[in-house]
Write a protein that binds this DNA or RNA. Structure first.
Length: 684
DNA sequence: CTCAGCCTTCTTTTT
DNA sequence: GAAGGCTGAG
């Protein structure tokens, strides 16, 4: 192994040959990072501090100093981040960079296609998305006579636990004790399900999202050849959003960098917001313990927000105890004070937001430069109604994902069967599309078919345990599958075959908007032409599950207001940002608080406010419905209460303003008995 | 056994 | 306002 750390690609000065004037285009802090040599580097990049720019210039710099682009591995958190960064590096260098970049899951997928056999995976494994995984786990649980038992948590919950164990590398016992103590009495069962679920996936040649990382790590752990191949291939490893990596990912990174130690991790501890899915805050906070010789850099100059907005952000995050000391300094001219706006009720809040959005638009701010960022998706309900009523166009970043829609998954299940005839989930999905075939019949047919070495061959035989009513459907399926198989590894043609083989008709029979769904599938087929391998195409579908819906209208994109969760807004910025629902229980979220300290929620608040460039407004309702209680006085969020009052401008909104005002004590007389049971902890 | 329709419930964040 | 559970008809 060419293990030689820094010898392998000795950094040489770019000299006069460089087409980039680094010193002119980067600030001194950024420049240091871009020009730093090899070895472990920790970059604390504050919000809006030009992190992507800095990383881009570093990639360019490495390439200019002789590192082959293919030897640079850039691991990111989202597909968007990696493609953006690579694209910018290419522009910078004026040519294809071909550095290897992508999400951890993407890299894990490529690694397993190559080396999966080391850990017992067949070459044609298929990827199960979250829904599939839940189904499969549900079946494992049912086999243990569990699903019907009401004591047992739902597969959804159990999968959360299994996933948490995988991502934190903790034994199930630890996960249950720490995060699900109410289920401790079920530990035995949970461990059994965990085991059968893992075994079942292996049998069927199915991997879930977590397996893409778990098995990748296992392959490197077990096989020195595999390990050193990665270490040789990627002489420089960079990790973006390091604060959101979990222990599993950290281990993978440690393996990759073990030989050469050319590891640069970039992140902002103040923006660590993914502990709910196992992110390990300690990865970044204690990086120096694992890499004592690491050099640390800080990017603290903020190019995005006004000093007023940063003052608020800095003041808020100060309440967290665990963090690297840093203070964002604004490069922007002074702006208006952030506004704090209490409203009477959620309806008034929505009306206020809509009105202010119109105001800002009239002041010359484009709609797509305005965002409403909320803690949880359901908090946008009233606002959506209000915006529709007023005809303000908006787009929601979240919700239904294109590739997760039923018709997309249904159609691709045929391709999955073709790629991996043992894919039980795909079989059942395809079978259940047939008339008169439901859960039970599908299971029977699968049981019969899966006994054979050639499940697909069984399909054409007439002996399957299908009811007479389903016979015609079975024939259709057999015929369609033949057509799909005939187009081996041409996913586009395969999709066309599915459509032609009765799926088009099926959609018309099932959905009112069949035509738009057919159009979706035709668009997908067009997109699929770039793949020469059905497995690759299917993996892409699973891994890019939140890719934006392809534009089938052909119309120019409208300028729209953005509605988004804060999680999805990370890394983005807008001229004006509204953060509604700042009351205890909603933001901070009651459930999230239950998991421990409020520091992650505060970081979420920090992320939200640092998205704003010039206008920031924080709003909350004084009264709101809570479950069966139609109107309870709300307590303003601690994130508001703890702010020094000089940092915000308190705005009082005339109650007569907005939609029809309601009586103060808005209690339905018929509901009073609910108030009588004395159980409400909220009475004030 | 399927499937439609009516019920309740409970609203987190996602590769 | 979606999704899951439950019921009853075919």
């Amino acid at each position: 192994m060419t293990g030689g750390p820094r010898e392998e690609y000795e950094l040489r000065p770019a000299g006069g040959a460089s087409r980039i004037d680094y010193a002119a285009e980067l600030n001194p802090q950024q420049l240091e990072v871009a020009m730093a040599g090899g070895g472990p580097l920790l970059v604390i990049a504050g919000a809006g501090s030009g992190k992507t720019r800095t990383l881009t210039y570093r990639v360019a710099r490495l390439v200019e100093t002789g590192v082959p682009p293919g030897a640079i591995l850039l691991l990111t958190f989202t597909n968007k981040a990696s493609s953006e960064m690579l694209a910018r590096a290419e522009t910078l260098l004026g040519g294809a960079v071909s550095a290897v970049g992508g999400t951890f899951h993407h890299a894990g997928h490529l690694a397993l296609r190559r080396h999966g056999h080391v850990v017992g995976l067949p070459r044609n494994f298929t990827i199960a998305d979250r829904d599939d995984a839940e189904d499969l786990l549900g079946e494992c649980m049912e086999e243990q006579a569990a699903a019907t038992d009401k004591r047992f948590p739902k597969p959804q919950v159990v999968l959360d636990m299994i996933s948490m164990a995988a991502n934190t590398l903790e034994p199930m016992k630890e996960v249950v004790t720490r995060r699900y103590p109410m289920h401790l009495d079920l530990l035995q069962e949970l461990e059994t399900w965990q085991g059968t679920y893992a075994a079942r996936k292996m049998d069927l040649g199915i991997v879930d999202f977590d397996d893409l990382l778990t098995l990748w790590l296992r392959a490197m752990d077990q096989d020195a050849e595999v390990r050193s191949e990665f270490q040789r291939r990627f002489a420089y490893v960079m990790v973006d959003e390091y604060q959101d990596t979990n222990l599993l990912q950290a281990k993978i990174v440690d393996h990759l960098a073990a030989a050469h130690r050319n590891l640069m991790v970039v992140g902002d501890d103040a923006q660590s917001i993914y502990s709910f899915r196992g992110a390990n805050f300690a990865n970044i906070i204690k990086f120096n313990e694992r890499y004592p010789d690491a050099k640390m850099f800080k990017l603290e100059i903020n190019y995005r927000s006004s000093p007023e907005i940063l003052a608020l952000a800095n003041a808020s995050i100060e309440h967290n105890s665990q963090q690297y000391a840093k203070k964002l300094v604004s490069e922007q001219p002074p702006g208006p004070l952030p506004k704090l706006v209490p409203l009477e009720r959620p309806d008034e809040q929505a009306a206020y937001l809509a009105q202010r959005i119109r105001d800002l638009e009239n002041e010359g701010i484009d709609l797509d430069q305005i965002a409403v960022l909320y803690r949880s998706h359901y908090l946008s309900m009233e606002l959506q109604l209000e915006l529709s009523r007023r005809g303000i166009p908006f787009e929601i970043r979240s919700g239904i994902r294109f590739f997760e829609q039923a018709h997309i998954k249904d159609a691709s299940s045929y391709l999955r069967i073709a790629a991996n005839p043992m894919d039980e989930l795909a079989w059942k999905r395809a079978l259940r599309l047939l008339p008169k075939v439901g859960k039970a019949t599908a299971a029977k047919i699968w049981a019969a078919v899966s006994k054979s070495k050639d499940p697909l061959g069984e399909l054409s035989k007439k002996k399957l345990p299908a009811p007479k009513a389903a016979a015609a459907g079975m024939e259709d399926l057999a015929r369609t599958m033949q057509a799909v198989l005939a187009q081996k590894d041409k996913p586009s043609a395969q999709l066309e075959a599915v459509l032609a083989g009765g799926f088009r008709t099926l959609l018309h029979d099932t959905y009112e908007n069949a035509n738009s769904r057919i159009l979706d599938l035709e668009t997908l087929a067009a997109y699929a032409t770039r793949f020469q391998d059905t497995s690759q195409f299917l993996a892409e579908l699973a891994l890019y599950s939140n890719a934006v819906e392809p534009d089938t209208t052909g119309l120019p994109p409208e300028r729209r207001l953005v509605l988004s969760t804060i999680h999805q807004a990370k890394g983005l910025e807008w001229q004006a940002v509204f953060v509604p629902w700042l009351v205890e229980g909603r933001f901070p979220d009651a459930r999230a608080l239950g998991e421990g300290s409020d520091e992650e929620e505060r970081r979420l608040f920090y992320v939200a406010v640092t998205r704003a460039r010039r206008h920031l407004e924080l709003t909350y309702p004084l009264f709101a419905r809570e479950g069966q209680y139609p109107s309870l006085r709300q307590r303003p969020s601690r994130f508001i209460e703890e702010l020094p009052s000089r940092l915000v401008m308190l705005v009082h909104v005339n109650r007569a303003w907005g939609p029809a005002p309601r009586p103060e004590a808005d209690v339905d007389p018929d509901d009073t008995d609910r108030w009588m049971d004395g159980k409400s902890p909220y009475d004030e």
